[in-house]
Computed example of a mutant assay.
Amino acid sequence: MADVRSSFSAPRVRSSVSAPRVRSAVITGASRGLGLASAARLYRDGWHVVAAMRSVDSGMKALRELTGAREGDPRLIGTPLDLTDAASVTAAAKTITEAVGAPYALVHNAGISAAGMVEETPADLWERMFATSIFGPVLLTKELLPSMRAAGTGRIVLVSSQGGVRGMPATAPYSAVKGALERWGESMAGEVAPFGIGVTVVVTGTYDTEIITDAGTTDCRDLDGPYARHHRTMDKRGRAAMRMAARSPDKFAAGLAKALESSKPFVKTAIGPDARMLLIANRVLPSAGLHQMTRLMLGIPRFGALRGQGRSDG
């Protein structure tokens, strides 16, 4: 005789409340500066954080010291990532997928800084700048997008700067790459929004990190060359402005955490009062007006003032 117990057993009642899924975030450049502060903040907020960085040992040590996380904590994982090396990017994407599946947030924070006029900056610096901030991040995004599309949710955050809003003298490679980053984000937002993935471009203000110091910047300036007068004035005024405006990286991390709560398909937002003021000025003032304002603020000589003084002896 057939067992009929299953036919008359009480139906199973499924709970309408499921356990909340821990959201995961990938943050590049997480070994120092804004990336380090952001990774620590999200971990403390309960996120599952994958910290991608070139120096994993020192970076993870710094993260554990900031967060109190124990070694081997499954919510805090480090992965090697050299954005200038395609094989490293592919390997990092594999580690990320194995660790968290489809990440909810992909934060492209890694970047490098350089000082010098266009004439002074070598071609290989431009190539390294674009590899770090555009080509590598694009490849990492391409590797992770299939799983994010399948999940039907997520947010890609591109960390830009004031140099991406307006091209700034003596930082042309940096301004160029941040401008390209913003255009990439705007384009990608229209492509991925139908799959439930949003894009946020974050314009950062001035923060007290290594990137604004001599130690964190590749210095290509020729202080005895034709742009010496520019450099002397800009260096003095720039350092004074940074001392006044620089805020704690923790302030940025709080702004990033808030930005990740957005459900809009595309957002461009500023984190920091100086960045907010620039975005307002960029909307209100014509390009020529902003150019003139920048020249006056930085003490750059007026148009034509150095005619005849920049001739080469060759």
Rank of each mutant, 00 (worst) to 15 (best):
K94D: 15
D3A: 06
G185D: 08
G198D: 10
A254F: 00
V192H: 05
S160V: 03
G198V: 06
R221P: 02
L260P: 10
M234E: 08
T204M: 06
G154W: 03
V100F: 03
A253C: 11
K251Y: 01
P74C: 00
P20F: 11
S55P: 01
G255T: 05
L181N: 10
H48N: 11
P286D: 00
K142M: 08
Q309K: 06
R75N: 13
D73Q: 03
I197E: 08
M188N: 01
G310I: 00
H230M: 09
F135N: 13
E71R: 04
R149Q: 11
L139I: 13
E71I: 04
L34R: 01
W184E: 10
E191Y: 10
V203G: 02
K251A: 09
A52H: 04
S18D: 05
S15A: 13
V199M: 07
V50H: 12
K264E: 12
G29L: 05
K61I: 05
A253Y: 04
A193L: 04
T132L: 00
A281M: 02
V284H: 02
M234Q: 14
A102Q: 14
K94E: 15
R155A: 07
T213F: 01
A228M: 11
V165D: 01
K268C: 07
A62P: 05
R54T: 10
T97E: 12
E261Y: 03
I212M: 15
R12V: 15
R295P: 01
E120P: 10
Y207C: 00
L139G: 12
V203P: 03
D219G: 09
P173M: 03
D274I: 06
L158T: 02
R21F: 07
A172L: 07
S15R: 13
F252R: 00
D222V: 01
T171I: 15
S15E: 03
M148H: 11
A254Y: 08
L296T: 08
G272D: 00
H291F: 09
A99Q: 11
D214L: 05
Q162V: 14
V49K: 02
S175A: 14
S287K: 12
A228V: 06
M117A: 15
G29T: 05
V177I: 14
P273V: 01
R14D: 08
G238K: 13
P286N: 00
G78T: 10
A86C: 08
G255K: 04
G198P: 14
